[in-house]
Amino acid sequence: MATTIDDDQQGGINRRDFIYIGTAAFAAIGGAAAMWPLIDQWNPDASTLSLASIEVDLAPIQPGQAITVLWRGKPIFIRNRMPEEVEKAKAVDVKELKDPDAEVIGTANLPATDANRTKPGKEKWLVMIGICTHLGCIPKGQSAGDEKGPYGGWFCPCHGSAYDTSGRIRMGPAPRNMEIPPYRFVEDTKIKIG
């Protein structure tokens, strides 16, 4: 049906089309910009972000004891390991591990040595995210009476994954070592996680 051709339409885009297309493009930019608040409002809000890092006082934790704190909605296992537990963890050859990566959040291809999973000079403290890497259960081993599994660390009751005293997977269906969250010592016995 479009047989009529406007006088000024012969050379491609004319002035009129330019105005229409320009207006539509300008409106589209505004519409896209207006989408951003609608998307951003789903992000963690300021009160959630303010809890993104926590400080934990380690002083009350006796050797051999462990505590669990909540960080970003996840359980953090903090264990004051006995010297023999540290020795046992250090003695393991990385090559025989199921997961040779240290699984420290924010690093890649770090060998899964016990030294890499702890802080220098603070080797007795193991701080890790207490979630089994198989299907997300919380492994046992924090309380004194808990079953710690054949490697003396943690044992996940869901599907029988066993972790050693450095939180590395040694047996069972879990594919990876338990993760180490980002943390640092702000004082001798105080850490900041996150």
Binding site: I19, Y20, G22, F26, A33
Partner: peptide, 15 residues
């Protein structure tokens, strides 16, 4: 932004 958009729309309408 809205002032420019309204101006462009008015121009489009006039044309």
């Amino acid at each position: 932004y809205l002032a420019v958009l309204a101006g462009l729309l008015l121009l489009s309408k006039k044309v």
